[in-house]
Design a protein around this nucleic acid. Structure first.
Lengths: 340, 340
DNA sequence: TATCCACACGCAAACGTTTTCGTAAGGTTA
DNA sequence: TAACCTTACGAAAACGTTTGCGTGTGGATA
């Protein structure tokens, strides 16, 4: 098992100094052509690769972007990561991904770990628990230590930093409008509890759309689901004996679950009930009927977030701080779950 | 913007030496109680966190596991990562995830980057291109430099290292047997091209099951799909005018796509045609009808892989090399796409 | 022959730790 | 008072780089 070869070893073998080796590998004119060639040949032979750790220590930067997301087994978030990776790779950055598993503690641990030397900046969507606790000290601390943070999707309004979001309200409004324009009047919404920022925003969008159509929102048409893992029974209860003509669900799972329950009730989609979801994932695409949905353009979010972060990382040090909030357009993807 | 505080700065402020600070923070008896308390108070106040990079350099280990997967937007792989993270976090390891995007070049780049200081060992499922090219020098090199590698799912037989796989053949056999036991006789398989190791293994399992039932396999019942992104037309062509009573698909997407096409042909699932898929993802679970499938137990794979890797990382240096191949049991999840 | 200048290379510091070893100060013992 | 032991701390090396600067050697010039 040959160990990794270092400059020191090459220097020893070739009987020159470490600096000579380093400079030779960089093709410095300080070093004679002869020596340069010898060193490079040797380095190639032994497959020398500079040690990133040492470089990071020396340069005080890691060329690494830390991404922290609430869930790793989640189509939308992985799509965003895809976008981040695209930009990062182009610009020579590495990407470290950590999942907080929606736990505040794990988010803190991950952030602190990455912040202590492993990453230069962060792209972050906060955990459910964090939104609930409203404790952002870890993020503030990271920023105050000079590491830029870009928040996306589940952001925190109180935090002053770059952000990439979609206009959740507008998206929800678009979805609801679509249903209204189809002639639906009895439109229910399946949403999350209010402390999830995106859930609340989408609920508001739904309400705004109804108002614009002069339809009074009904409390009993709004279901706020707390426990996503057991949404099925909640939705089933909610849907029992309700005479709806449309459902707007704030995510794929709610939409699909509702569709299945309606199916079992013998209702036809979209003939009896139309459904619009949120997030364009594989479920929406492949479900029968395929689901009309609001696309969040996850990859685009990742791309923009990465660009914002890298701009900060590579920008002038003493430029006055200026933070942007990028709003990604949502779009309605019409499929079979809403009638034409 | 207060910069990160280092031992040196604390030392300067408190007018002691760096070593004193370091020892004090570690509660060394060498340092007087007085000094210890003073240092600790100061460190806390300024929120001192040891710099991981410096530690890595010093300790020659990073306490980080590198995971390289072919795709990040992929349910199975993210499930595996979930398992890896579980174990890693328990044992105090960090997890870095990189995706090769099924590109050989990117796999090489990622591996080399992580290998040059960022990770102590690797958990890796190789890119499609790598399997095709049969070029494994980057992996061999990594191992020869003393960094353990655990291969999972898409492994390479020629490589001598730890591996975690499922018995793809057995799983496929189980799936096919299930169909046979239901009385199906005309069973087609939707599989991948042969250079994808798991595809080939599953095809073989299918063939074995048929043989055991004394059914001659028919060439025209086997579809090897090259381009997953455009599988729909291939499958549609294949299914045209075929009088099948069952389909075994080696992944979720093929299964769902076939189901949709059959639907359009007016065939009922499972009454006219039964379908068994592979991989227990959200699609299989939520599709209507829900799909009978072979579960790969992705999380378990991740757990086992992480354990194998950490064992190697923490094992004695000079213990004779010994490599294990862990085979995870697959299981058949019966749902609605096969008749009872 | 004394002076100067390239050339080609080495020294050493720095990045932030940890840890071994050395040592000054002060107290105890003989 | 000399010898010794604690106590409490500091110096320095090491991890692997990069880089500014110093310097020895040899040849060219005056």
């Amino acid at each position: 098992m040959k160990q990794k070869v270092t400059l020191k070893q090459i220097a020893k073998e070739l009987d020159v100094s470490i600096s000579t080796v380093s400079k030779a590998l960089k093709d410095s004119v300080e070093i004679s052509l002869d020596t340069r060639q010898k060193v490079k040949a040797f380095a190639k032979l032994y497959n020398y690769k500079p040690n990133n750790i040492a470089l990071s220590l020396k340069n005080r930067k890691t060329k690494t972007i830390g991404v922290i997301i609430p869930e790793i087994v989640h189509h939308f978030f992985t799509t965003v990561i895809g976008g981040v990776e695209k930009v990062a790779n182009e610009k020579g950055y590495n990407v470290i991904i950590c999942s907080s598993n929606n736990s505040f503690d794990k988010e803190v641990i991950n952030l602190e770990m990455l912040a202590s030397g492993s990453a230069d900046g962060f792209i972050l969507s906060v955990a459910k628990e964090t939104q609930q606790k409203k404790d952002y000290h870890h993020i503030e601390e990271t920023m105050s230590q000079g590491m830029p943070v870009v928040l996306f999707d589940r952001i925190i309004d109180e935090l002053v930093c770059d952000k990439v979001i979609i206009d959740d309200g507008k998206g929800a409004q678009m979805a609801t409008n679509h249903l209204l324009s189809l002639g639906c009047k009895k439109i229910a919404i399946l949403t999350t509890v209010d402390y999830i920022s995106v859930g609340k925003l989408r609920t508001n969008g739904y309400l705004r759309a109804l108002r614009a159509y002069d339809i009074t929102a009904r409390e009993d048409y709004i279901l706020k689901i707390e426990d996503i893992d057991h949404c099925e029974s909640e939705i089933a209860d909610f849907l029992k004996d309700k005479d709806l003509d449309a459902i707007f669900a704030v995510n794929e799972l709610f939409a699909v679950t509702a569709a299945k329950i309606l199916n079992n009730q013998g209702k036809k989609i979209p003939d009896d009930v139309s459904i619009v979801g949120f997030t364009d994932g594989i479920l929406s695409k492949h479900f029968i009927p395929s689901l009309t949905t609001i696309s969040q353009h996850g990859e685009e979010m990742g791309i923009r977030a990465a660009k914002l972060l890298i701009d900060k990382l590579e920008g002038e040090e003493d430029v006055p701080e200026e933070y942007k909030t990028v709003i990604i357009d949502t779009s309605l993807i019409q499929r079979q779950s809403t009638k034409k």
